[in-house]
């Protein structure tokens, strides 16, 4: 791993982890919104306990990748395979995928605006039925985000953007996932909230959850991630350890603004 340089090409996978510790592997998926070919053979993997980031410009296919993994009705995966925790999940319906252990905090937060904070968090745990564990996780979310504890009974739609983002991440954690997909968690937030969100992402990961992080704020994403993938027009054009990507000339020019 130490001498692994940033490699190019969609088939490249960084490092050589043992097959057993691979949690998610996306193998050359092609996804379509109707006739629009959004993902043109995306390949990536997430290992146990890792933070992996997916960076790229608007429309590169970052969210489409997460949506494909999550089994949403659109975009449709027409080719390739997605394997999670040893099971193929390519064409499984979304609610089964959540049950297997993938939760998402979607782009734009997508809270249920007319439900309270607690109800939103409960919805995150919809697939679970263990009452005691649920209470425990509620406490865990409130300790990660003390701000949410103050707003338990407030309608989610009336909170500030930063608070909503906390609630969205907390909601994803309530599923007790093995892998959490975070789509643009820093978007539209004040710098102080951005810092706080990234600190929490590291904390969540330290507690044992693998994270697949989609970010436009590539600098911060590469700071917290161990590995990264760069997407361009539906394809992985670059991948490797995060420090190597940070040093890469192309990445620095295109995404870090240096």
């Amino acid at each position: 791993m130490s001498d692994a340089a940033a490699t190019t090409g969609p088939s490249a996978t960084a490092g050589a982890g043992a097959a057993s510790d691979i949690l998610l592997s996306v193998e050359g998926i092609h996804s379509y919104y109707g006739a629009i070919h959004a993902l043109k053979g995306v390949t990536l993997e997430v290992r146990q306990g890792e933070i992996v980031t997916l960076i790229g410009a608007n429309g590169a296919g970052k969210s489409s990748t997460l949506r494909s993994i999550n089994g949403l009705p659109s975009p449709k995966v027409r080719d390739g395979r997605i394997v999670f925790d040893g099971q193929e999940i390519t064409h499984r319906p979304g609610h089964e995928i959540v049950k297997l252990g993938i939760a998402q905090s979607p782009e734009g937060r997508r809270l249920f605006p007319r439900m309270t904070v607690v109800e939103n968090l409960e919805m995150g745990a919809f697939q679970r039925s263990d009452k005691s564990g649920l209470k425990e996780d509620l406490e865990r979310v409130f300790s990660l985000f003390p701000r949410l504890a103050e707003r338990k009974t407030q309608k989610a739609g009336t909170m500030s953007g930063g608070e909503q983002q906390m609630c969205a991440i907390g909601r994803a954690l309530m599923a007790r996932p093995k892998l959490v997909l975070l789509d643009e968690p820093s978007m539209g937030l004040a710098p102080i909230f951005v810092e706080r969100i990234f600190e929490t992402i590291v904390e969540i990961n330290r507690q044992g959850t693998a994270v697949l992080l989609v970010e436009q704020n590539a600098l911060m994403a590469l700071d917290v991630a161990s590995r990264g993938y760069v997407l361009e027009i539906g394809q992985v054009v670059l991948s490797g350890p995060a420090q190597d990507l940070r040093k890469d000339e192309k990445v620095r020019k295109a995404y870090l603004g240096e």
Binding site: V98, K99, P106, M115
Partner: peptide
């Protein structure tokens, strides 16, 4: 209620 407020987010919740 969740499905009524945001069908896709509801699907993401399982």
């Amino acid at each position: 209620r969740a499905t009524a407020q945001d069908r896709e987010a509801a699907a993401m919740m399982g």
